[in-house]
Design a protein around this nucleic acid. Structure first.
Length: 575
RNA sequence: CGGGGCGUAGCGCAGACCGGUAGCGCACCGCGUUCGGGGCGCGGGGGUCGGAGGUUCAAAUCCUCUCGCCCCGACCA
């Protein structure tokens, strides 16, 4: 393609709207433009990247035995009401109605629609297993769309759904999809890691997320450097500490201390000159209209609300309002403690069980209690794993300590079990003539997000450095001086590379070299071929590797073969 | 939704406190010159100052309301 005739509006300056790297660079490279918050147009260059990712996804899904179809974006409320998600999905579901006032929504995911299809068409175990997928625009009215393509309200997703006759077959299918995902992200040239994950709104039995590792990622994961264990911190189980609390005869008597204005753990530690791990914070959650639940977490730990929600079987969990806290404890927020705190249900994280002579709030303004011990001073209703895993925690899989990393969730696989098939009556007759609900799985890949994640992971101060498999073009030719000889050499090379099916962008604009260099670096084509009078005089052309910056000078007649070999190699290794 | 910030030419910004008929850089158009890392000269086009209402002789500027966008927290591919 000729740059002079292409719609690739690059920008010289950073747009004010973008702060995150991928967002900024994709705007500057002329790949996307914003239409509204979280809604973007894919310009020709951006679309080429999307199509490349889609092609890899298609190949691997097909190879894994999945069949492509296309479900409607618009779906009727009735299906969503059957599973209860019309209400449960909340404000993220974009709802609309037709001229007859019938309710519809724009599909944020397609379990309902595909399960409806399956219950109509599948009636025998002989038709299973069945895995269907589509690549389609999805709509989720995100609370806060941000970071360009990273979290849009409209985005491109590959979603797949499996239907199996039994648990073993479903697990096999899940594993096949898991393996396909590993191949997909390897092939795109991204550094990624599958991690154990929470099931969230989709629900189901178990799931893994595929995280592209990047410091700007929104997700925090923990991993064991010495085993395969890795998990989203939301999900990561914390191994209960082995150290038992001191024997009752060895603990000190309970004591009240004055702690003026010590409303946070930091304040308290500074005031009493103790470490945060000697402090226990008491969090009050509103767990029902008139029900408060207290959760004890060690001062240096973070509460994990997902674990608490799961334990309590709740959909929503919010911290109690300051007014409520005051009403219950007769003290402002910051002085809550478990001693004498009633009549609320009291949950405690396992870490508390290993503590003795610890410090808690006194349920009185400017007062804390020290030398507190359980069960001497208060009774815990339920013990559990209620905190967020963190770096330094013991791995559940080895004796190693967990480490943390940031990641961008680009894929998510779920074992759904019969959650949807039972609610919607998607059943089949087994070999014994018994009616059984299909065992389901669902598998998503954020295609547009993968493009953004690739930029987060592959860029430098000059611009994007695309991995070859998803680069919009494989080679860019830069005639950097304007003589006829240079122009002719560029044209000839452009023609030759085209003959070899190399995807080549020729910068035939009447611009100075510097402009072309900078745009090429911004766009991030993996190889740049630089043609100028200087090099032609030596009978060489210069080839620059965008990512490494390495340059080679070779004679013009060898360039096409060299490029062809190099492109093929990079496609194979996913670099 | 809570907290913070911003809407002035395609992009990046100044002007606003102190009201007086809108400016700079880049981009764009023309001519010339230049040509291996965002050249230079001359000439030129382009703005309902996000929108509505108000105060005033006069509003980008002051007041009220509103819409949009970005960033930080609760959701998710």
């Amino acid at each position: 393609m000729r740059l002079s005739q292409s719609f690739i509006p690059t920008m010289r300056q950073d747009p004010g709207e973008a702060e995150v790297t991928s967002h900024r660079l994709m705007l500057r490279a002329g790949m996307i433009r914003k239409v509204a918050a979280g809604i973007y147009s894919y310009l020709p260059l951006g679309l080429r990247v999307i199509r490349k990712i889609e092609a890899i996804v298609r190949e691997e899904m097909n190879r894994a035995g999945a069949q492509e179809l296309l479900l409607p974006i618009l779906s009727p409320a009735e299906l969503w009401k059957e599973t209860g998600r019309w209400d449960f999905y909340g404000k993220e579901l974009i709802r609309l109605h037709d001229r007859h006032e019938r309710d519809f929504c724009l599909g944020p995911t397609h379990e309902e629609v595909v399960t409806d299809l399956c219950r109509r068409e599948v009636s025998s175990y002989r038709q299973l297993p069945l895995t269907l997928y589509q690549i389609q625009t999805k709509f989720r009215d995100e609370i806060r769309p941000r970071f360009g393509l990273m979290r849009g309200r409209e985005f491109i997703m590959k979603d797949a759904y499996s239907f199996d006759r039994d648990e073993a077959s479903s697990q096999h299918n899940y594993q096949q999809m898991y393996d396909a995902y590993c191949r997909i992200f390897s092939r795109t040239g991204l550094r990624f890691r599958p991690v154990e994950a929470d099931t969230g709104l989709i629900g189901g039995i178990s799931s893994h997320e595929f995280m592209v590792l990047a410091d700007t990622g929104e997700e925090l994961i923990v991993f064991d450097p010495d085993s395969a264990y890795a998990a989203n911190v939301e999900r990561a189980e914390v191994v209960p500490p082995p150290t038992p609390a001191s024997a009752p005869e060895n603990v000190s008597p309970l004591e009240k201390v004055s702690t003026p204005n010590a409303k946070s753990v930091e304040d308290l530690c500074a005031l009493l000159k103790v470490d945060a791990n000697r402090v226990v914070k008491t969090l009050l959650y509103q767990t029902g209209e008139n029900e408060i639940t207290a959760v004890l977490i060690r001062g240096d730990h973070q509460a994990n609300e997902i674990k608490i929600k799961r334990f309590l079987g709740l959909h929503d969990l919010t911290l109690a309002s300051p007014e409520t806290v005051e009403r219950i404890t007769n003290a402002p927020v910051g002085f809550v403690g478990p001693v004498g705190l009633s009549p609320v249900r009291l949950l405690a994280d396992h870490a508390i069980g290993a503590l003795s002579d610890f410090i808690v709030g006194g349920n009185e303004t400017d007062v804390h209690l020290i030398n507190v011990n359980s069960p001497r001073d208060f009774a815990v209703d339920d013990w559990g794993d209620f905190r967020q895993a963190q770096a330094g925690d013991l791995s559940p899989n080895s004796d190693s300590r967990l480490q943390t990393a940031r990641g961008i969730e680009v894929g998510h696989v779920f074992m759904l079990g019969t959650k949807y098939s039972e609610k919607m009556g998607s059943t089949f007759l087994d070999a014994e003539g018994q009616s059984q609900p299909a065992i389901m799985g669902c598998y998503g890949i954020g295609v547009s997000r993968t493009a953004a994640a690739a930029v987060e992971q592959n860029h430098d101060e000059k611009g994007i450095c695309w991995p070859m498999p998803i680069a919009p073009f494989q080679v860019q030719i830069l005639p950097v001086t304007s003589s006829d000889a240079v122009r002719q050499a560029a044209e000839q090379l452009y023609h030759e590379l085209g003959q070899e099916n190399i995807e080549v962008l020729l910068d035939d604009r009447n611009e100075r070299g510097g402009v072309k260099f900078n745009d090429a670096d911004m766009i991030g084509t993996p190889y740049h071929i630089i043609i100028g009078d200087k090099s032609l005089a030596n009978n060489t052309l210069e080839i620059k590797d965008r990512k490494t910056g390495e340059k080679v000078h070779i004679s013009p007649d060898k360039v096409t073969a060299w490029i062809k070999e190099a492109v093929t190699r990079k496609l194979e290794i996913g670099a």
